[in-house]
Design a protein around this nucleic acid. Structure first.
Lengths: 226, 226
DNA sequence: TTGGATTATGAAAAAAAATTCATTTTGCGT
DNA sequence: ACGCAAAATGAATTTTTTTTCATAATCCAA
């Protein structure tokens, strides 16, 4: 875990660096803005600790320039607990800020938090179901037809989801009502029919392609062949 | 690919079995219901072809009993194209049906479809974000607090999602409005505040635990420590 | 401690989604 | 071809969600 410490007060900087090393991190102190930016951009860091007030090049500017290029987490050290400082700091892209003076334990805690977060943020799978020229995206709950994006309401999405998860499997109205509407008793409404219609309206734009087939006396199906 | 063919008309049964083998499947014919059920339950099959009308034990019953135990795909072969047959067939859990007489090519197509589907249906990851005693489930869009499930509206979900994806990171109203509402210009509404309130109302039930903190002059944050 | 800015809050208004209902159209068995 | 059941359809109604607005409460700096 490599941490870059950009802080001009040598006493503080060395203290932080020492503490970080003591915690088992690899830490490097840099004492002015120009040098800091160079180090931040030139090498790979896991976290950057950045003082707002720096000689030669101020923290805001460094933060902005770094964030423009990469997403290294930055913790801003603000001199006073002033709103303006924090605002500009965060607007320039900082991930967190810590007001001076601070307890070293608090800084360490914030670092641990960022480390933990970045560990999690690794594997984020994204699913989608496909049928003909349709793609139902699970994460965004949107439907892609060819190159068009179609918005779906909750019920529309849930209904289409069940249908597309069961391509080539006939679904009775009972099944659909049970899974989408949670009515566990026999249906006495035609919500399914109505929502099938809504879906058809959204899907069957202009082209004569038929996506949802009616199986008379039974229910609906999305079929690949014949 | 192992396929079980439960069909009492020996001519048809042998014909199907032969064709399946010709296609490269491993197929076994079974000529009556009792034997069929035994084979279906006792061994692992990728697909079961099941005639509705069988001596000793009818197809519906077999289908029901098999589906009660496992989820082997079943294609029902219905004698006549009668609605009642299909209804009971599907209600008993069959995945598809094919009316007799049928072209062998159609049967093969339906089998291919099921095979393909099952190939896809393998890896379905399910994500969730966690914070304190909260779990935001990405697939169901529901929030679990301890052991209680809380429903969220679209905006509530999207807002909470951003917040929980950025634990320990302060988010300005601008950031939130941009990501949840798509207003790319400066805000002139207080929707964010209002929805933060909605979330707090849903989250902060009875216990004094504070989930969403206000950072005055800046925005909101969900913080782990201090 | 006070004033002004910021946030919280309740509730009204507007918009969207879900449901129901009445009617028309379609498909299928006779 | 006819009649009936099933499905499609359009639209009204109800419910929920989203947004706006006016006001109250809170926080912080001077």
């Amino acid at each position: 875990m490599r941490i870059l410490v950009i802080e001009d007060e040598e006493g503080l900087s060395d203290f932080i660096t020492l503490e970080l090393k003591h915690e088992g991190y690899e830490a490097r102190p840099v004492y002015d803005g120009r040098e800091g930016l160079e180090a931040a951009l030139g090498e790979e860091w896991d976290i950057i600790l950045l003082d707002l007030m720096l000689p030669k090049l101020n923290g805001i500017e460094i933060c902005r320039r770094v964030k423009a290029v990469k997403d290294t987490p930055i913790i801003m050290i603000t001199a006073r607990d002033s709103v303006m400082d924090r605002v500009t700091g965060l607007d320039s892209g900082a991930d967190d800020y810590i007001p001076k003076p601070f307890a070293i334990e608090e800084l360490l805690a914030r670092i641990r938090v960022i480390v933990r977060r970045n560990e999690k943020l690794s594997s984020q799978p994204s699913m989608s179901l496909a049928f003909k020229d349709l793609e139902l995206h699970i994460d965004s709950r949107m439907l892609k037809k060819g190159d068009r994006w179609i918005e779906l309401t909750k019920k529309e999405y849930e209904l289409l989801f069940i249908l597309m998860k069961n391509i080539n499997r006939v679904l009775t109205r009972e099944m659909l009502v049970e899974q989408v509407w949670d009515y566990d008793v026999g249906i006495e409404t035609n919500v399914v029919d109505v929502y099938i219609r809504h879906l058809r309206n959204k899907l069957e734009t202009a082209d004569k392609e038929e996506y949802i087939q009616t199986i008379r006396g039974i229910g609906y199906i999305m079929r690949d062949e014949k």
